[in-house]
Nucleic acid binder design. Structure first.
Lengths: 278, 278
DNA sequence: CCATCTTTGTGCACGCGTTCACAAAGACAT
DNA sequence: ATGTCTTTGTGAACGCGTGCACAAAGATGG
């Protein structure tokens, strides 16, 4: 994952000094913190004062040893023989994730998905605020979605700067994604959440996280196929290699435009993936 | 890790017997196959006959050595000195992912997100077919979304069985997710794509992949905060630990899921989505 | 103050995934 | 055929993440 983060992590040797905290928290751990936070928030609402690693781990769906190790990267916030103070941990994790501050976000591409995201309640809470909804289609701009007017992408730079937006969400058709991404980055956005089935190319220092429905489905299909065919498999394996039948579904997505001649064609560079979906 | 991978697979050791080919393809590789497939499909449409690992890797946003190793798990489909045959590879990967067959899918919870997914073009292509849209709200059932009538969840079992649905997509409010999941599994579904911010509990043999928008945003916020505060950091480190201010936005809960690791600085990673408003 | 019990924090080992680096395979030209 | 050049396929090293297992820390009771 890319935790992108421009500079790699420094191995930080200095750690020795008190709170080695904050430095070099493993990416895998960072990815789980929101999970813990959610479970802790639920406990907090039920006014549960403390929780053991075992209980919290169960609630978050992870192994308790892993949870303890994760927390150890934040510092020693637990009390042996007792567990962790819920409120305290909620605060520490929120702070570590940067949720104690306001994060203005712009959503570009107000189609079905953009619409859904704009209405998503999870945005409002936890410091994320939709600063603006943008779309390039004049037929859409002006509409009010989730209480906000959809503005034209021409205003993108202006909005990103004036609202100090550092996080952008791309829900455009694949063909427009790279261009929108470039503009967002040029305007000052340094973190992008991409829902378009496109490999985005960004300069160092910019983080991109991808969300791709079709990839998720394909991964499920793979496992599903394996479950179903585990008994009688091999048969067609031997010769399978030959005669690549014409691709069935051919058509395929690739919804938007063709390859972009404009900017480098290519694609090039870096990215990393994992799964995603389109 | 980017891992992001699904939740828990069982290692299923039995495999050992024959066919080393399709056996034991690493999860990380499986997660990238859809990515390669997408890039290859684009090349195919441009009638490009062959492609080198270097070019394809660039298009998919990965390292060429990784790509070659990934393909090596599928077999030796390349020609040294030349590269890979595009059409052939498209076929092989499609077959490996199980995309050469039909996968009926049900979407449960037709809120904003469910609506968006139902209209998502990516479904139709690549073997995935929306077999039915379900919702528990009588005010919604009966409506026609994306050309399909929304049916009541009472019909879930009946539909899953008659349509032989093995993949279910949950886009319900968090409170209903586990229950819906249980019913889907009981009816025969063995793969679930969960968009609700809830940790789903499923029996062995059932795969669950999670997509969580708020977790993705929180991870981005973490890195964003780090970028911003890299210069003047440590100061508040020492005493920070004190005074846990009351949690601000209490409500809401957000689940999450694991992530893939991935290092590389670059960018990318991802997954996730969000959930519909209740 | 001591004994006992609970739960944290972590050293250590293991396994997966990534990357390097290169021999081998094949295409092509002569 | 032979030589050269390109690109694959992979052995091996490395690093991250996971999970075990346990000593240490602190609570609790007598």
């Amino acid at each position: 994952m890319a935790t992108g983060r421009s500079t790699q992590h420094n191995p930080n040797p200095a750690a020795g000094t008190r709170r080695s905290r904050g430095r070099g928290i493993p990416d895998a751990t960072v990815a789980r913190l929101p999970l813990y936070l959610r479970a802790l928030t639920a406990l907090s609402e039920r006014s549960v004062p403390t929780v053991s690693s075992e209980e919290l781990a169960a609630a978050a769906g992870v192994n308790s040893a892993k949870l303890r190790k994760d927390f150890s990267y934040l510092g020693s916030y637990g009390t042996r023989g007792v567990g962790y103070d819920v409120e305290y941990l909620v605060y520490q994790i929120s702070r570590e994730l940067g949720l104690t501050q306001d994060w203005p976000v712009v959503i570009v591409g107000i189609g079905n998905l953009g619409h859904a995201l704009a209405n998503y309640g999870g945005f409002a809470s936890r410091g994320f605020r939709v600063a603006a909804l943008l779309d390039a289609d004049p037929a859409i701009t002006g509409n009010v979605v989730a209480g906000l007017p959809v503005r034209h992408t021409d205003e993108m730079e202006e909005i990103v700067r004036s609202e100090r937006v550092s996080i952008g969400v791309i829900t455009t058709p694949p063909g427009a994604a790279q261009q929108v991404c470039d503009r967002l980055v040029a305007a000052g956005v340094t973190s992008i959440l991409n829902f378009a089935p496109t490999v985005l190319n960004v300069p160092d220092g910019v983080d991109v996280r991808k969300v791709d429905l079709s990839i998720e489905l394909q991964i499920l299909a793979f496992h599903e196929q394996r479950k179903a065919g585990d008994e009688y498999r091999d048969e067609d394996e031997g010769a399978d290699a030959e005669a690549p039948p014409a691709p069935a579904a051919a058509v395929v997505s690739t919804p938007g435009r063709a390859v972009g001649p404009g900017r480098g064609h290519g694609h090039e560079r870096g990215q990393e993936y994992e799964e995603a979906a389109g």
